[in-house]
Design a protein around this nucleic acid. Structure first.
Lengths: 235, 235
DNA sequence: GCAAAAGTGTTAGTCATACACCCATGT
DNA sequence: ACATGGGTGTATGACTAACACTTTTGC
């Protein structure tokens, strides 16, 4: 594959590495959360940080991001999206390492720790109560939060954070957490129901000392069809 | 700086490079254009390609992207934004190179070729009539086009492509080109004027065989103020 | 029967859309 | 005077925003 590569070029440029870092979002009935891991290796051993890793020379970027996620949890079909690449010269103490950041959306209710990995020390942190973070991870999270916030307005991706069946109240609280604002209950329900994308499961929530709520699920099939014919979701 | 770096890690990972590639947009009264350069060096010598370059080990990513742009034109204060990072394993014949793509917005009317560089062979191509492109540059342009299209709906960045003074007709044609659609003239003008962000320069366009048009300029100062107090532009 | 969250409609204002003709200039 | 693009207003329907009380359950 390598043909006519100038030795000078090789020496001058080919001594960098890159990593992927995942901002894994979850939601627990009230708060947006992020999954952090406790670093067991240098650099920054002993700090909570974003799950991430160096990318192998023969590994696609997106695959690397998935690998990092698989080391954390055995969930499948996780929503994932690249956000931004952070490339300050001195961001990594080992040398020149730029990092490509992704965010991922996980149903905390389904979440299970993948025991076979360094993820034994993973923990959910409320997005408003994060510990001190190494590298530029604080900046990355800020970026991820905004990217997700924006995107969640125009695509129904937030729903990835809820269990398969959910109540309208849960849905509203989720969107309120993402958008960091409050919505009027009647208008919120009206708008969401009028899109015709929620399927009544004929089940009710139960076990609480108040009126049970209708459980809905999101009609992804219908959404995909509508989208192809020009419909666009917006909150 | 490098402390306790495992030799194995160095050998295993630190043999990659990264580049930046710029999608430079321009507008010429009717068409969106992209600036391509004629490659004078391997790989893909002799093909038209995005202006880009390998990033030095001690050079910030954003600085590298600016450097590439400065090699092309001596314009200052150019709008530039990172879009996405492309990292397929075999995208570069010299080895593992991922590329961070940016787009930049240039006023073609002010554009001048920076003679002191490889940019002597730069040329504007209509976005709908691009030549065959090396690497994954076609994919990058597609990505850039969509990112710009989206962003231009919610921030008045498209205006960066027009000369300082412009007519409402030019403005409409620009937005039509970006959004690949047509707008109703009366509604378009109404909406834009009602934002109160266009300043009548009291000049008229001239030299054409028809009624001269009012020249406006965009009130960036006012826009920045409004934005801070919660106003949000949308087309 | 009371606490706690679920659920429901109407009105007023704002915004988007659709649509056709006269105006000012150069030749 | 004619060709060319510049410039303007209104009416209708759609959507948004504001707002308060009744229902159903567990205890």
């Amino acid at each position: 594959m390598k043909k006519k590569v100038d030795k000078e070029i090789l020496q001058k440029f080919f001594h960098a590495a890159f990593s992927v870092d995942n901002v894994v979002f979850g939601f627990d009935e009230s708060d947006l959360k992020i999954l952090l891991i406790f670093r067991g290796a240098e650099p920054y051993k002993g700090m909570w940080a974003l799950p991430g890793d160096l990318v192998y020379l023969k590994e696609d970027l997106d695959i690397a991001a998935q690998r990092v996620l698989n080391d954390l949890t055995s969930l499948e079909n996780i929503f994932m999206e690249q956000i931004h690449t952070f490339g300050r010269v001195n961001r990594h103490p080992f040398g020149r390492v730029i990092t490509v950041a992704y965010y991922a959306l996980i149903k905390i209710s389904d979440y299970n720790i993948n025991a076979s990995s360094w993820a034994e020390n993973a923990m959910w942190f409320s997005i408003n109560q994060l510990p001190n973070l190494p590298f530029d991870h604080a900046e990355i999270i800020e970026f991820a939060k905004n990217a997700f916030k924006e995107k969640a307005l125009r695509q129904p991706i937030g729903i990835e954070l809820l269990p398969k069946n959910f109540t309208l109240t849960q849905l509203q609280h989720l969107f309120e957490a993402i958008q960091e604002t409050k919505f009027d209950t009647r208008n919120f329900r009206k708008k969401f129901l009028s899109m015709g994308l929620l399927i009544d499961t004929n089940k009710r929530s139960n076990g609480s000392a108040h009126r049970p709520a209708t459980l809905y699920r999101f009609d992804f099939t219908k959404y995909n069809k509508l989208q192809k014919s020009g419909f666009s979701f917006h909150l």
